[in-house]
Design a protein around this nucleic acid. Structure first.
Length: 320
DNA sequence: GGTAGACCTGGACGC
DNA sequence: GCGTCCAGGTCTACC
């Protein structure tokens, strides 16, 4: 880290804990995020408004009142707010946790509040596409290759992905049929056919948000539900095979083998978590995260090259 | 509205 | 080493 770099300061809410905020959702294990288990800092390259890269080390100060962003180069004054806003989005510094903690006191006790996400919705959508129909290990590979080969160290911008093209993406980043979907998304964002700012507006109603997400080519019910929580709307689940594994194991439910049986199980899962409305997803994820931590230790001790490769139903399925 | 098959990769398994 | 099968979510065609 060069001494010529900038150090930016970002105030955090009372009780905020960097290690818990970062290590609260699986995307912290995906490139270009790198959680340093020993130093308990987050390495993360972010973009300037012009697309340049700023490599940041994010750490919490001794009193806990603020984050220090140690940047590898001088960040012009006009760009500092842009850089800080991305870190703020990742750690959901603007999200009020009081209603969630009131609904789920266990989460408050354990410090499970903000759930980690990406600096941009675009990155969250691409990461979600790479998590579909694939093992978690493969998801980590796709993201690593896109960062190395398309984004040159940072997460690729829509322009970089659009210019790279679907054929190259498929051949060089092992994303398979997802290449066409990712490049189409990038081009739609670039030419204005898809306005991502619309999705970020705080007043969006859950059904409208879900429907609009599902209208994006490549996003089905699971991906749209997952993106709802990444947008701060927690009242719907994103049911996948991991949800089935967890629910059946945790509550001693026999896992159905037929499509009709799984549909009934979907309704059962939805009824179960409805008790914590409007925080269904967060309640499910808190339960799942506690289960992972009971197996592998607290999440901030997980190394992305070892423990961090262990997740998804396929790996854990031996238990049901 | 429901269902089947294709999409693509990596890993497990049998030979 | 090679071939086959399987897991994983979405799309499309078809009934």
């Amino acid at each position: 880290m060069s001494h010529a770099g900038s150090t930016l300061t970002l105030p955090v809410p009372r009780g905020f804990d960097l290690k818990k905020a970062v290590c609260s959702y699986g995307y912290f294990l995906l490139a270009p995020n790198h959680w340093d288990v020993k130093r308990r800092v987050l390495y993360r390259p972010v973009r300037t408004s012009r697309g340049g890269l700023v490599r940041c080390v994010v750490r919490q100060n001794k009193t806990g009142s603020a984050l220090k962003l140690l940047c590898n180069r001088a960040v012009p004054r006009g760009e500092q707010a842009f850089v800080k806003a991305q870190v703020s989005r990742m750690l959901r510094l603007d999200e009020d946790q009081r209603a969630w903690f009131s609904a789920c006191p266990e989460a408050k006790k354990r410090g499970f509040g903000p759930m980690f996400r990406s600096p941009t919705l675009f990155e969250d959508i691409v990461k979600t596409i790479t998590s579909c129909n694939v093992t978690w290990r493969n998801t980590t590979t796709m993201n690593r290759m896109m960062v190395e080969r398309v984004g040159h160290g940072g997460f690729p911008t829509p322009r970089q992905l659009a210019d790279f093209g679907a054929d190259n993406l498929k051949a060089q980043c092992k994303v398979g049929y997802r290449a066409e979907r990712i490049v189409r998304l990038a081009r739609d964002v670039l030419d204005g056919a898809l306005d991502l700012a619309w999705f970020e507006a705080p007043q969006r109603e859950s059904d409208a948000l879900f429907d609009a997400l599902k209208a994006i080519h490549g996003l089905g019910p699971y991906a749209a539900g997952n993106l709802c929580h990444l947008l701060g709307v927690y009242d719907r689940l994103a049911i996948d095979t991991e949800t089935y594994r967890h629910f059946c194991h945790h509550y001693g439910v026999k896992r159905p083998k037929t499509a009709a049986g799984l549909t009934k199980l979907d309704r059962k899962i939805e009824r179960h978590y409805a008790a914590l409305s409007p925080f269904q997803f967060k309640a499910y994820w808190f339960e799942l995260w506690c289960d992972y931590e009971s197996r592998y230790g607290r999440a901030w001790t997980w190394d992305r090259e070892t423990t961090g490769q262990n997740f998804t139903a396929a790996v854990l399925s031996g238990e049901v």
